[in-house]
Design a protein around this nucleic acid. Structure first.
Lengths: 137, 137
DNA sequence: ATAAACCTTAGAGTTAACACTAAGGTCAAG
DNA sequence: CTTGACCTTAGTGTTAACTCTAAGGTTTAT
């Protein structure tokens, strides 16, 4: 299977596959006489792993780590994998919390604003951003 | 007031201030005889506006738009400002939803994993990432 | 008078995850 | 035998919001 075919199978771009190979996420395949990459089942499995790990929120760097562990399972423990998962979940939770603060502040700003089509001379949102005590703590 | 002093007052870096000026977020100040920037109250007010808008989640590009509206209030309506705010809130909400899906998936993975310090031969997390039906829909 | 601390500009580097481009070689069909 | 679809590499561009570097001029304190 050449790169275009594999890319179609897994619904990724050929650029992405070469990039993953360069980043050490996808095994370097054998080449045919004219230098074309020749892929097999193994590579498709790797790409599906990458896809699923991405869908769960892991970055490529984290996925590389997971793939390495998966490749040499005997050298690693379940605990290690679980820790990676929990650490990631923690980061995600922190980001969610930050965004929820943004959301709350934006809601408050929008709520206070009349939203009229008249000139914004006394717009409460602009005032809030100007004033020191614009937003309730 | 020179740039270092102003930067200290608002707790930003001098690099950031020059960057904001270059991006049109901070008015270009007068220069003294030797070319040093000379700031006044106006600039501090602009920076506080930027700070607060950032704290609420607006990007610099969005802040530039808000500052422009704020500068020429008569030409713009409350509705315009409110729309920007609501649009931003919508984007934030979408991002939160995505992260919450990540969080749920990661929780599910972690929950299934024994987390033992034994070799990860049959780690349920790795299995889930390998298998097609690893994660519950 | 000189050292430390400050200022200037232009431009490169950072992070993530690719997309895009150029310049060229290969392969299958008609 | 040539056209079009495919492949190769190397290198640049993208976005955000700065940070860092180099190479130099200024100010302040001693």
């Amino acid at each position: 299977m050449r790169i275009g075919e594999l890319a179609k199978q897994v619904d990724m771009s050929t650029d992405a596959l070469r990039y993953y190979e360069q980043q050490g996420l996808l095994s370097a395949p054998l080449r045919n006489a004219s230098g074309y990459r020749q892929y097999g089942r193994k590579h498709m499995a790797q790409l599906r792993f990458i896809r699923r790990a991405k869908d769960v929120g892991f970055s490529l760097e984290e996925i590389a780590e997971l793939l390495k562990i998966n490749f040499e399972k005997e050298q690693h423990s379940c605990q290690e994998v679980k820790d990676l998962t929990l650490k990631k979940r923690e980061l995600v939770a922190e980001r969610i919390a930050e965004l929820q603060r943004f959301h709350a502040s934006l809601s408050q700003l929008a709520e206070q604003c009349c939203g009229s089509s008249a000139p914004a001379q006394h717009c409460s949102i602009l005032t809030a951003l100007e004033d020191i005590d614009g937003l309730t703590q």
